[in-house]
């Protein structure tokens, strides 16, 4: 039976792709639908499921804390993406030269990217400790006020952003770097003939030539920022005063700590719509403004 299938040239390709498609369907496509179904039920994972219609969503949008959760998620996204892109670009420009020093620094700045985010979080919990953490010890050594990195509701979300930026800026810089290095030399030579200033060259040649890469990275970072979980769970647990509670973390907390699966699924639906919306809007807005080679 199996051999006959493999010998039939028309059926063979289907047999070859079937395992992959089955897994993708079971673990990615079906769960999206199943999640939508769960969102209209009330369920504690053990007992029977009870249909509640849009009850979960109604509760969600009347919950004053939920507005805060969305705000946290968007603020986190805005800070994380802009810092990664700005520092990534600066770092890439700095590393854009030959020689062992540049190569060494590329390795050093990339290293955090291969380390588990859990490990990174544990290290920064220690560094950001209020009383004895290295950061505050350095601040007080130079005569500055200590900062409540993870205990001050005004600061905690930013501290999580810092950790994430620290981990991923090297990767972003090296991707931008390889885009920089693929810009054809003759463009700069032509600009030199025209006596273009360094700033003009940067604005008129460098930026347009790497804009497809920048565009790609912004989107990847935006989608990645919605998935930030490890730092939150290890470093702040959503606190202090819910200041670091984001959409993905509330899905986890409602579902797995409070066993409100339907409610959690409803939050996941909101998150999915948000990610989809941003992706579509983003492609629409930038499609024509990006310079493609």
């Amino acid at each position: 039976m199996k051999n006959a299938l493999l010998r039939d040239r028309r059926l063979l390709p289907y047999a070859l792709i079937a395992p992959a498609l089955v897994i993708l369907a079971v673990f990615y496509l079906y769960p999206i639908g199943y999640n939508a179904v769960l969102s209209v039920f009330s369920w504690d994972l053990r007992g029977p499921m009870k249909f509640v219609g849009f009850g979960n969503f109604a509760e969600l949008f009347t919950d004053p804390d939920f507005g805060k959760v969305i705000q946290n998620t968007l603020v986190y996204m805005g800070m994380e993406v802009s810092l990664v892109m700005i520092f990534g670009l600066i770092l890439a420009l700095f590393l854009n030269r030959q020689g062992w020093l540049s190569e060494f620094l590329q390795g050093v700045s990339f290293a955090p990217n291969v380390i588990a985010l859990v490990s990174v979080s544990l290290i920064f919990v220690w560094l950001m400790d209020d009383d004895i953490g290295l950061f505050n010890q350095i601040l007080s050594a130079v005569g500055l006020e200590p900062v409540g990195w993870l205990s001050d509701p005004q600061v905690a979300l930013f501290s999580l952003v810092l950790v994430s930026v620290w981990k991923s800026v090297g990767l972003n810089a090296l991707i931008i770097l390889s885009a920089l290095q693929s810009i054809p030399r003759y463009l700069f030579e032509a600009a030199d003939l025209d006596n273009a200033s360094a700033w003009t060259r940067f604005r008129r040649i460098t930026i347009p030539m790497i804009s497809p890469t920048l565009f790609f990275l912004v989107l990847v970072n935006v989608i990645g920022s919605f998935q930030a979980f490890d730092t939150i769970n290890v470093m702040t647990q959503g606190g202090p005063q819910s200041s670091t509670n984001t959409l993905i973390f509330s899905v986890y907390r409602e579902g797995f700590e409070y066993y409100r699966v339907g409610y959690a699924a409803a939050i996941a639906v909101v998150l999915m719509v948000l990610v989809g919306l941003i992706t579509v809007l983003y492609f629409r807005a930038f499609q024509k403004r990006v310079h493609y080679r």
């Binding site: 993708l24 999206i32 199943y34 919605f226 998935q227 899905v251 579902g255 992706t279």
Partner: peptide, 29 residues
């Protein structure tokens, strides 16, 4: 083969789905 491009599109589309969005239904499954 018939449907190749559509099926490949499905494969690419799954890349856009953040894995963390589907952990709850998969857990129930």
């Amino acid at each position: 083969f018939k449907g190749r491009d559509v099926l490949f599109g499905v494969v690419l589309a799954t890349m856009m789905i953040p894995g963390q969005l589907i952990f709850l239904p998969v857990f129930a499954m």
